[in-house]
Design a protein around this nucleic acid. Structure first.
Lengths: 338, 338
DNA sequence: GAACGGGATGTGACCGTGCACACGGACGTG
DNA sequence: CACGTCCGTGTGCACGGTCACATCCCGTTC
């Protein structure tokens, strides 16, 4: 019933024949062309229904040379933040009739960036969202002559890309200021991987705020976002223990850190204060509940798509939008020496 | 340089003209046809290189009626487990030259299932991986005449679907057995949402093991996978406190639970033992480190694709494969009354 | 009442690729 | 040497849409 007896799914010509019109009329109905008589439209729609007709996306893409697909390039997509953004992107794109094709890269393997990009660009995507704001990704894009418009989450720096930046610096400064206002003067920072733009921004925010308050700083430790790293870094740091607070560049590392601190027989926040970044849903249930900086990944993903597809959202979508993250005070940071 | 002067990207005919062969010969080179003279192949490849020729996916899809795309339908894709699987699926699919198109559903909105399915099927996907093993998803699939082959993660039940099942029941039994062997006789179970097949399987495993050991059971509490829920359920339960151990259906709920227990001034595991499920990367750093059941989401995703695309992986891929999860003993469960 | 305009619809070409089939030549075989 | 076979390659069409243009019909205008 759903095919026209020739073993293939029905095409507009099949619909046309049964509706007694030309294939072009069917096409017009599909594309909401204004000058179609209501009766004709009805008839065509009904035949479509009967035949369970579905437009062939490939055929349409071939002739219009528009794939209606956007690509999402992401690293660490298993983490809460990027994963939330991807979900939001997918949903927003779908609302505009777009499909989302995903490609993950392995942050530790430089070759995978090129592979993922090649894969996406062979897909003839119309736009690209990058949730892997690493410097080398942009380098790879530049090197590969990728001329698809792209938007990047969280980059504050790169002039060429249209960026939707969470003001990572402001967030990091708020976190740092919080610790300083609690009286801490020996504060370590565990940063994200060197190559990550947001890691660098958070680090910069930390250093700026420390400098603005004339608090001497030590060199940040470069981590890899994982709780495991936070744990081992914590053990290392505690063997000297010349600090009263740590600002970790994400919540997972903060968690590992608190684990190490407790294992050493110390208490958070009595002995050492900890602040994280991201506010993953679990952070409120850590022990102690984690003071952290919240960023709205979902909103971010949504606006990313709006920016890319030029949707009406956000009035005049300039080349750059900024979202300011929010400090969430819980129990993991306290007044020093209390 | 990359086009043939007509403003469009180069096609096989452009390549053919410059290489002095027919378009069909170019097509043969593209598809690794055996009978092409080496010299010819070389020449064609070189012209392709010069022109930066990229095959047009839409045209190929149109004529072969194969989209080389698989869809991934997932709920709660922001959680570690599903997110890991998606990443693995993407990677495995890409290795076989397939693209992955994602669609997320909002578990709380029944309509979104139909919307996501319609979206994916309009995309003319060749296969579907379902990481949202909820009963109503399968009902929606059945109702919508979706005739694409599909594979589902973690379902143990549904005869129609080719399922790659983690033996959730065995995992849950192992967790429960662990608690029983530690002397616990009053054990609660916080399950996942009723509609979820894996939640149901874990619940069943719990009940089976309890029954096998003649331990009386109380009705499981139905949760929603979140740490928040675990926390509130914990507070509720502790107002009565007629138990010595809890088996939570995932790690997040276990985390919330431990939070509630500690807030009540009690200690895990001294006063109450807790076991989770999933072994998310953070679980080892919870306080106390969480005893839980590990399942390899990445491997699962990989095998899912192998099953769907009929890859060689896994020798004779039967209709059903089982992965047995592993109990990871850490510090959150201890001998009762110690 | 002829010319004109625009709404509703049809006709044919075209997008870039793969497939069926044809074709010429080299080679082996009786 | 005629014939069949296989290799390497070319020709034309099909896939399912959209686009440009043509056509028909009806109402309006001078």
């Amino acid at each position: 019933m759903s095919d026209a007896g020739n073993g293939r799914p029905p095409s507009i010509r099949d619909v046309a024949r049964l509706a007694g019109v030309s294939h072009q009329t069917v096409s017009r109905v599909l594309n909401d062309h204004p000058s179609i008589r209501d009766a004709t439209r009805e008839r065509v729609l009904q035949v479509m229904q009967e035949l369970q007709y579905t437009p062939n996306r490939a055929a349409r893409a071939l002739v219009t040379s528009r794939s209606q697909t956007i690509g999402v390039l992401s690293a660490s997509s298993t983490q809460y933040g990027p994963a939330s953004s991807i979900a939001a992107i997918e949903s927003a794109a779908r609302d505009q009739g777009y499909w989302v094709s995903a490609a993950n890269i392995d942050a530790s393997d430089p070759g995978s960036i090129a592979a993922a990009l090649a894969h996406l660009s062979a897909q003839s995507i119309e736009g690209l969202v990058i949730i892997a704001p690493q410097v080398r990704v942009f380098r790879a894009i530049a090197a590969m002559h990728i001329d698809v418009p792209y938007v990047t989450l969280q980059s504050t720096e790169l002039g060429e890309a249209r960026a939707l930046s969470v003001d990572q610096i402001a967030g990091a400064r708020a976190a740092t200021r919080h610790l300083i206002s609690l009286g801490h003067r020996s504060i370590y920072h565990i940063a994200g991987p060197q190559d990550w733009i947001e890691a660098e921004a958070r680090m910069r925010g930390f250093l700026e705020e420390m400098g603005a308050n004339d608090v001497p700083t030590t060199a940040p430790i470069l981590g890899d976002w994982t709780a495991d790293f936070g744990y081992y870094a914590g053990r290392e740091l505690l063997s000297v223990r010349d600090f009263t607070a740590i600002f970790a560049s994400n919540d997972q590392m903060a968690l590992g850190l608190m684990h190490a601190i407790r294992e050493e027989g110390l208490d958070v926040p009595r002995d050492i204060s900890v602040v994280g970044f991201d506010d993953i849903p679990e952070a409120a249930h850590f022990w102690p509940p984690l003071t952290t900086v919240r960023q709205d990944w979902t909103e971010l993903g949504r606006r990313c798509v709006a920016l890319l597809l030029g949707g009406a959202a956000g009035a005049s979508v300039g080349a750059r939008q900024t979202v300011v993250p929010e400090l969430i005070v819980r129990g993991s940071a306290a007044r020093v020496g209390l």
